[in-house]
């Protein structure tokens, strides 16, 4: 018999992860800093010409977001694995999938959401016109949760492995490619004054698919990895 309901357990995990994350602010800033550094590389490589940068801005921001997001996935389960709380989550009487959802949501709020907002600031550095800002924001708002969901499967499979971080990146970045394609296409279309509806329908469908399947795959992977 459990004393707390599934909803309460969900909330408890969510709040715990948020609290833990906010107490390690440095760790949260690292992916954002990495994002900023990767974006800075491009003007250095492409040259400071305004038109060139403007043209490549959607691609640059999205590639940097994919990289920053994939390096942040390692954080999702590692500390819980090290201090044993991951085992407790798996042993709890509540639905493991539900608790995993709480962890993914917390991870997105701590990494994906700041990344989305930060990207808007960086797009100004790359001279992205104002009319493309909203599509960029929306595509990141839909895309980064997909990253967190898909990344959680990779994070669960590689948790506790030596050199797990690099391996994790190799596993999940190929799976991120469709999101990158549709998002960059959406922002580019907006830049050229075309409709962005089709791309957003695709992104929405990918989000729904990831939301439906990824938590189960993650729960199964964690059970396998913890024996």
């Amino acid at each position: 018999m459990s004393l707390v309901s599934n909803h309460q357990a969900f909330l408890a995990i969510l709040l715990r992860d948020l609290r833990l994350g906010l107490r390690h602010r440095g760790e949260l800033l690292n992916p954002l800093l990495f994002f900023l550094i990767v974006v800075t590389l491009f003007p250095l490589a492409l040259g400071p010409d305004k038109l060139t940068l403007q043209q490549h801005a959607p691609a640059v921001i999205w590639v940097a977001a994919v990289l920053a997001s994939s390096v942040s996935m390692d954080m999702m389960f590692r500390s819980d694995f090290e201090d044993g709380s991951l085992e407790q989550i798996l042993l709890s009487p509540h639905s493991v999938t539900m608790l995993i959802m709480a962890k993914i949501l917390a991870h997105w709020l701590l990494t994906g959401a700041p990344l989305t907002i930060f990207a808007l600031l960086l797009s100004i550095l790359l001279y992205l016109p104002v009319e493309a800002l909203l599509p960029l924001f929306m595509s990141l708002l839909i895309g980064t949760p997909i990253f967190s969901l898909v990344g959680s499967v990779g994070g669960a499979l590689t948790v506790g492995l030596r050199g797990g971080g690099m391996l994790l990146t190799l596993l999940i970045v190929p799976l991120y490619m469709p999101v990158l394609i549709f998002s960059v296409a959406a922002v580019n279309n907006a830049l050229h004054g075309m409709s962005v509806r089709g791309e957003f329908y695709f992104l929405g469908a990918l989000l729904v698919l990831a939301l439906t399947l990824a938590p189960f795959a993650t729960a199964a992977s964690l059970r396998i990895r913890m024996g």
Binding site: V153, L157, M177, P178, F202, A217, I224
Partner: peptide
């Protein structure tokens, strides 16, 4: 454990192969 973890990854890949294929085509 390697076999079972690999199986999950392969199944995730199966879901993704058509998505990747069509998005790349598009």
């Amino acid at each position: 454990m390697a076999a079972r973890a690999g199986a999950v990854l392969a199944l995730v890949g199966v879901v993704n192969i058509p998505i990747i294929h069509y998005s790349v085509e598009w």
